[in-house]
Design a protein around this nucleic acid. Structure first.
Lengths: 349, 349
DNA sequence: CATCGTGGTCGAAACGTTTCGTGAAAAAGT
DNA sequence: ACTTTTTCACGAAACGTTTCGACCACGATG
């Protein structure tokens, strides 16, 4: 491979001069610029990223750590980040954790070895102990997305989780539902904790006491949501509506409904959080609490870039974005439902 | 940040000795190993990736270039690659091209600046001119996935595209369909060209002459497939079945059906290529030609890793994987369809 | 006329590793 | 007891850049 030295001899100038024209870091005469550029394209020179990074102490690399790129929400976020970063002259490493804290630590280590200039961390555990281990491992500008880890000095960008729950529960309760199943996420994840807490508050506000048997945790996992819903439906007095904490879990719930021969919204109503790209092709078209995902992603990467540039120091603050209820066809009034007596408990299995 | 030198002084040994214990690249006494390891964890030393890469000439980086990570097919492939690479001690750069050749070239350049050890290139244009430009830019072990560029020395892993078309057309023709719409991809992409060619062959084998007005190209794009389908449905004599060349385009077709008030499979039958994760929640559940995506991805990365390790030189050969027809509920016998006379042409717009 | 920038160029040091040749000490062979 | 081999540790060079101080020529300033 050609090096900067080859360019220098070909153009008949010093190495440092070539560097100056490449980076426009010092004044160079028109004449020399032309010669150097000619030499560069003549021998097909491409700077060596690692050498640049080593010497300049700036890798121009950004790490993105997320639960699962297979989830359309995260892949969309990753694309936004990639695009913005590329424009700013940064490359991105995107890595999946599957929400496994140990794996997450490993990835963090790899990113630090690459001396990333900054990181975006999505949806990790958020208990204090994990927070401390995280902080020990991170010492690079970082912003948290879609989750809030306590006791960190890092900025966080999230949905207004409490409002999201309220939107869903108010809607369902407004339709007359009193037995509302909640397919929640994973304990210790802030998204889960906050949504769950305000779910209970919203239910209470409608005079509905906590019904522990209707609240199941499915770890933000599609298959677990499927199984949890099967269990919910097998209850002697099953819920008339279900609120699922994520898009993938909503899919799990829907699969459980078709497997059990339930029709939505005739037999049961459904609300999820997180929208889908093509709701028209789903059966039924689901009512969801949507989030301004693209804007959130843009704000996140802008915050990180500003912090890296040293323009804005980390404030440790949290920025909330407002959710929105999108009503489609997966909910019906509780009064219009066929009486629960008429329906048999799901066949034993 | 701590350097290897700090470790060396802390452990009271030479720098080269520390390097030897980190990389197990030379015999070191138990005693010294212990001292060095203690020093490493004491000061929290992490090797500097760029320095390693620069000196050793091995970045341990692999580039993955794909059209769009948002497409579930590609995100799944990316995950498989990430996992396998991580086990082999490589990190991955995943980048989106949106099938834009110019952007693709730019990404290629960035990857070469990072001195990636190898690349996986997915679904690019495959005409000879682009192939030449590509070859000028690439000089690193590479394997092509899901597309074949002619005149390259690189291995390619693809579906057996001809069989995929045959499976779909045989099935549809077997149901009695004679007017079969084809929502194809993008000219110059091998996947498109081969599928289209064998579509025509398969149609001919069933005594169906080419019907140019029923064949539309939608660039593998969901929205374009939507529009193309609208046009197809507005034809005086619309098709009774549609074959879409990709998962996303199939979604576009389905959206067009919904928007036009067509019911599938009553009014029109549908086959796509590429399966969906949760077909149960779709309306209707689609019949598709599926591909063994995970196995293909594993084979691809294994091939690349072997080539990087120098175990297997690039053969320039192409490996085909067999597609499979998965029959679900989106196709009906042409004879059972309401007569086409009874149906009005789609309302003008 | 002496002095002071200033635009343009250069050479060399440094970034944090790996690698290779050297050599001392210990182990093995005669 | 003397060589030969093996084992372990070391020092220094090199990887391809950036960056900084030095230098020179030249026009501007006092």
């Amino acid at each position: 491979m050609a090096t900067i030295k080859d360019v220098a001899v070909k153009a008949g100038v010093a190495i440092s001069t070539v560097s100056a024209v490449i980076n426009r870091s010092a004044p160079v005469s028109e004449d020399v610029i032309a010669r150097v550029e000619a030499a560069i394209s003549a021998i097909g020179y491409l700077p060596h990223g690692a050498a640049k990074a080593l010497r300049s102490g700036n890798s121009r690399l950004i790490g993105v750590i997320l639960p699962d790129i297979t989830n359309p929400f995260f892949s969309m976020v990753a694309r936004v980040i990639e695009t913005v970063c590329m424009k700013a002259g940064y490359m991105t490493f995107v890595y999946n954790t599957d929400e496994d804290p140990q794996h997450e630590m490993h990835i963090l280590r790899m990113m630090r070895m690459q001396r990333v200039a900054g990181m975006i961390l999505i949806s990790t555990r958020s208990d204090a102990e994990h927070g401390r281990r995280l902080m020990a491992e991170i010492n690079v500008p970082t912003v948290l997305f879609s989750s809030a880890v306590p006791v960190t000095p890092y900025d966080a960008i999230t949905l207004d989780e409490r409002k999201a729950s309220r939107l869903a529960i108010d809607y369902l309760a407004g339709l007359g539902h009193r037995r509302i199943g909640v397919v929640s996420g994973r304990p210790l994840v802030s998204t889960h904790e906050e949504r769950l807490e305000s779910c209970l508050e919203a239910l209470a506000a409608h005079g509905i006491p906590p019904q522990p048997d209707l609240i199941v945790a499915a770890n933000f996992d599609q298959q677990q949501a499927f199984e949890a819903t099967r269990a919910l439906l097998a209850l002697p007095d099953p819920p008339t509506a279900i609120f699922a904490f994520s898009n993938l879990m909503l899919i799990g719930v829907m699969r459980a409904l078709v497997t059990s021969g339930r029709s939505c919204p005739r037999d049961i109503s459904l609300v999820g959080v997180g929208d889908f790209d093509w709701p028209e092709i789903m059966n039924p078209q689901v009512t969801v609490v949507s989030m301004p995902a693209a804007q959130m992603a843009e704000f996140t990467i802008a915050t990180l870039l500003a912090e890296i540039a040293g323009k804005r120091p980390p404030t440790g603050k949290r920025t909330l974005f407002p959710p929105e209820l999108i009503v489609r066809a997966s909910c019906a009034s509780a009064e219009l439902m066929p009486s629960q007596k008429r329906r048999q408990p799901a066949r034993a299995e």
